[in-house]
């Protein structure tokens, strides 16, 4: 199993279920933290947490679905796996439509649960890396002058220096200088890399 560094946040009102889940996660070398209610987790929640949520749907106080909506409002990116002791098809469909990545019934098979948790952690880690990359790209892009941005857009669009120079009514030499600065500021060596980074800017 790959190491994602993410924590599995277990939110379930049943103490024994929480305790046994954390033991199971430990057996798979996964780190976990347990919470007895949605509110307890909400209090603990901080933006930038990484990992995934194993969330009981039916709990006293705030329900799992309500916590999901609340996390959505906070802009949280944690993937949610719902677990429920008494679900039905409409409940499962509703949870999935509201953005859960999975919905598992109690009692569950250990392999299935661990596999889903692992997938969730990996997808979250991937998203997190993408977001970090996007943030870095955006920050670098911010340092470009308006002229450099214009040149970058033309380069990404696949135009050669000569065409860009004509289009912007500047010398080819000037285009080359702008272009070099763009590559330097954006931290890339090839046009192909620049194109890849530009795709983050669209997001």
């Amino acid at each position: 199993m790959s190491e994602t560094g993410g924590i599995v946040f277990v939110v379930d009102d049943d103490e024994a279920v929480r305790d046994s889940l954390s033991l199971l996660l430990e057996s798979a070398s996964l780190q976990s933290q347990c919470f007895a209610s949605a509110d307890e987790f909400a209090e603990h929640y901080q933006g930038g947490m990484s990992g995934c949520l194993l969330l009981d749907i039916r709990m006293p106080g705030k329900s799992g679905l309500e916590l999901r909506d609340w996390l959505d409002q906070q802009g949280a990116q944690l993937p949610i796996i719902f677990i429920t002791g008494h679900g039905d098809v409409p409940m499962a469909v509703d949870a999935m439509k509201r953005g859960a990545i999975d919905f598992i019934q109690k009692p569950f098979s250990d392999d299935e649960l661990l596999q889903r948790v692992q997938q969730a952690l990996e997808s979250e880690a991937g998203d997190r890396a993408d977001r970090a990359e996007a943030d870095r790209v955006r920050a670098n892009f911010e340092t470009l002058t308006p002229r450099e941005r214009e040149v970058m857009q033309q380069v990404v669009a696949g135009r050669v220096n000569k065409v860009i120079a004509l289009d912007m009514d500047i010398s080819q030499r000037t285009v080359e200088i702008h272009r070099a600065r763009v590559m330097h500021k954006m931290g890339v060596r090839s046009v192909a890399d620049l194109v890849r980074l530009a795709s983050f800017l669209d997001k």
């Binding site: 679900g87 039905d88 098809v89 409409p90 499962a92 469909v93 999935m96 439509k97 990545i101 999975d102 919905f103 019934q105």
Partner: peptide
Amino acid sequence: RTGIQAAVSALKFGAHDLIE
């Protein structure tokens, strides 16, 4: 005819909605 897991899979693999 659907169980919870079948319904969940259908939605995971791209169905927009599922109604019993």
